[in-house]
């Protein structure tokens, strides 16, 4: 039971962090690889949505650490990954991405695969 509560905390916090990160990175524009990459990426870390996203990631991280201490890695990772379809829906609704049929199919295949991994 405890491990499924932890799975819920990890998944919820991960979804919030991903949405906030994507919003901020879209606002920032493309990060360029090269000499100043680490500096540019680190500068983005100070933006408010990224700060909030890091907070959610910290919650997710410590809940995941606790989960690892009571469950196998091969349970913990796939069980917390079932959020991919929910996140795809939110990407469409909140971020206004155009999610075409192949992308839905791919996300569903990934979710089904993850469910099988968790068995």
């Amino acid at each position: 039971m405890t491990r499924w509560v932890l799975v819920g905390v990890v998944a919820g916090a991960t979804i919030a962090a991903d949405l906030l990160q994507t919003m901020e990175m879209r606002r920032h524009g493309e990060v360029r690889l090269g000499g100043g990459w680490v500096r540019e990426a680190a500068a983005v870390l100070r933006r408010p949505y990224i700060v909030a996203a890091v907070g959610f990631m910290a919650v997710s991280f410590f809940a995941f650490l606790k989960l690892l201490s009571i469950a196998e890695l091969s349970f913990a990772v796939p069980a917390t990954a079932g959020s991919v379809v929910v996140e795809t829906m939110l990407a469409k609704v909140v971020l206004k991405e155009r999610v075409e049929a192949r992308r839905w199919a791919g996300a569903c295949l990934v979710a089904c695969g993850v469910a099988l991994l968790a068995l």
Partner: peptide, 22 residues
């Protein structure tokens, strides 16, 4: 690196593609 990838591509693209991690 994932933040950089999210600046280049949609979340609905990045999520399934990086699921190769599982």
């Amino acid at each position: 690196t994932r933040m950089t990838l999210l600046s280049w591509a949609d979340l609905s693209f990045v999520l399934p593609v990086t699921s190769a991690g599982y």
